[in-house]
């Protein structure tokens, strides 16, 4: 830390005690992630293999992208419960545009992302102009997006062979080694990290989330921040949906749904790490890794399939109750 500490020894001793407590509050979740890693390593010798670890990273890449976007929304003080359905819609749109409309791959990626982002803008409009709480506005937007999804594909999956270049998103390897989905996920994480931590609008978004009234009285355009945050959240979801379609090799209308609970869990887990009470991209990353390890590890151990669901719910409750008990998060 700084070398200009000129406080008296007593104050330093107090600060030391506070620092230890502070360290645990900030890194407890990271320690938990390490503990989970060690536990699975001991329980299964296949867990730590390079192939499996790479596998985990590929598996969590979609969740990482979706959760990073959601993190921005939560940082601005808003929920986005439409991320799952937006991901599903954009994945199906991308498939349909390539298979049915025969659009070039680039366009079949850009158009669904634009469409998803537009849904986020509508969410922002509902929240800031019509003053519907984001919890409700985005909850309602979910089925609307799902309905549009069904209307587009008739409710069926789109099975077909996509252009070869599209699969590069899921199975390609940068420089022949690094899986492309991991690269995409890391780039998205980095961009959102820089956005929230280094840019003016990012700081305004965080301030709005911390205290919207104080932000307003500071001359921050709070409504613009909330609209942008919800648009970015939907943007992340749409990107994730396309990556998912590339991985599955089909456009499945229901594929996005599970990502709502997973990304919310990741963000809430993340709010207990690094900067307690704040939604941060780096915290969410830890949350995503924990979820990924739990899924993969339980699979390797041959745990019954339903246990994954139970564990997800329990982890969500544990993360939120920890944060609420320590007064780091307040709901309503």
């Amino acid at each position: 830390m700084s070398t200009s500490d000129t406080e008296v020894p007593q104050a330093l001793a107090d600060a030391e005690g506070a620092r230890v407590a502070n360290f645990l509050a900030c890194y407890g979740t990271v320690l938990a992630a390490v503990a989970i890693f060690i536990a699975f390593s001991l329980a299964s010798n296949r867990f730590v293999s390079a192939a499996n670890l790479g596998n985990i990273l590929v598996q969590i890449s979609v969740l990482m992208v979706v959760s990073s976007g959601l993190t921005v929304a939560v940082a601005s003080g808003e929920f986005d419960l439409s991320v799952g359905e937006v991901a599903g819609l954009s994945g199906v749109l991308a498939a349909g545009m390539m298979v049915w409309a025969k659009l070039p791959v680039a366009l079949a990626i850009l158009a669904p992302v634009a469409c998803g982002t537009a849904i986020g803008l509508v969410n922002g409009f509902l929240v800031t102009r019509l003053r519907i709480p984001s919890l409700i506005a985005t909850l309602a937007m979910g089925p609307i997006a799902l309905g549009a999804n069904y209307a587009y594909d008739g409710g069926d999956s789109i099975y077909a062979t996509f252009p070869e270049s599209f699969y590069y998103i899921a199975t390609g390897r940068l420089f022949g080694i690094i899986p492309v989905p991991i690269v995409i996920a890391l780039v998205v994480v980095a961009v959102f990290y820089v956005l929230l931590n280094r840019t003016r609008i990012g700081r305004a978004i965080v301030a709005t989330g911390a205290n919207i009234q104080a932000a307003r009285l500071s001359g921050i355009a709070v409504d613009r921040c909330r609209v942008l945050a919800l648009a970015l959240s939907a943007f992340g979801a749409a990107m994730g949906g396309i990556m998912l379609t590339a991985r599955l090799g089909t456009g499945q209308p229901g594929a996005g749904e599970p990502y709502l609970l997973d990304s919310l869990t990741a963000v809430f887990l993340g709010m207990t790490a690094f900067k307690p009470g704040r939604a941060t991209v780096q915290g969410t990353l830890v949350g995503v890794v924990i979820i990924g390890m739990l899924d993969n590890g339980l699979n390797l151990l041959g745990a019954p399939f339903y246990l994954q669901n139970e564990v997800r719910g329990v982890v969500m409750i544990a993360a939120v109750s920890l944060a609420v008990l320590r007064g780091e998060i307040r709901f309503f």
């Binding site: 700081r203 965080v206 911390a210 205290n211 009234q213 104080a214 009285l217 900067k275 704040r278 780091e328």
Partner: peptide, 12 residues
């Protein structure tokens, strides 16, 4: 309620 950002640090 109106002037500070709880959870943000002094500098922020």
């Amino acid at each position: 309620r109106k002037a500070l950002f709880p959870g943000l640090d002094v500098q922020e």
